[in-house]
Design a protein around this nucleic acid. Sequence first.
DNA 1: CTTGGAATGTCAACAAGACTGACTTAAGCT
DNA 2: AGCTTAAGTCAGTCTTGTTGACATTCCAAG
Lengths: 165, 165
Amino acid sequence: MGDVTTGENLLFLTDEQLRQGIEAMFFAYRGFTADPDRILADMAYGRAHHRAIHFINRAPGTTVNNLLILLGVTKQSLNRVLRTLIEDGLVESRVGTADKRERHLYLTEAGEELERQLSDAQRARMRAAYRAAGPQAVAGFRQVLEAMMDPEMRRKYHALKDSGT
Amino acid sequence: MGDVTTGENLLFLTDEQLRQGIEAMFFAYRGFTADPDRILADMAYGRAHHRAIHFINRAPGTTVNNLLILLGVTKQSLNRVLRTLIEDGLVESRVGTADKRERHLYLTEAGEELERQLSDAQRARMRAAYRAAGPQAVAGFRQVLEAMMDPEMRRKYHALKDSGT
DNA sequence: CTTGGAATGTCAACAAGACTGACTTAAGCT
DNA sequence: AGCTTAAGTCAGTCTTGTTGACATTCCAAG
């Protein structure tokens, strides 16, 4: 495995290797979303609601603007999702104290309960995959994923990571 | 980094570590699809067309049924996408010789041209990420992704991989 | 050999979730 | 006072998923 990196013979960078990586990414992402999707299908919610709940939980008090940049959607799209979550009492929207134009978002108890249910399912699969692959593989996994992000998103990712430790 | 695996102290399996993995997966997948999406946005096509084109190129002569299992969508959903691709002369559908119910799918020259354009863009990002992370990290990346797939999809993934070598 | 069920694919209608564009309201800032 | 920013809304479109109904073809049991 040593000489795969030497000279011009970078075997792990062949088109066929890259193609396999692309397909692995596709199939793995399907697995990654499968469990939460199953839970949400019973309720009137979808993947969009899951994403909103995840990041509100991760960064409580985040503003609508922050959230839509993080999720990479328009405010109209996010608003539809947020409105139903607020109506259903899963998310609370508080007017900002410093800047009253801003709305700060928090999960209610019920919201936290659903978040727990969803992330338990998703983490269980992640944990199984991590355990099966081992810590070295996990480190590599994280490195490649990070290198694949757009620079702007890599910054957002790190900001979240550091706030969560 | 050695004692992270010893005893009960599996630091890489903490909830916080798993959560970071989940977020890495989310942000990385955004990057993963960004380049082809940009190309397709100009045409009347979307991500679904890309996926169909990718796998028809990968397994020429595949049937509609094969393809929809691979993609994990209903035949009705796939059919709409296929119809436009056939109308636009990117995909050819040939009635099966052994079983006339089946349609075997092939890319036309124009289809192959678009496939090349899309996968060049996607592979460029993948190649940059692989190069930045190095071969060891890539091996780990692939291991974790594979462990994350549903068993059925892992089988499909391997079948494709072996046919492509 | 016929007939009924299973498999394959197509057509139509609908829903979720993304988008753009135009507009309002409220608050902050120069 | 006037410009900008944050949030929310309304309307319309597009992609892509869904179900339901239907046509065609194959195969196997009577």
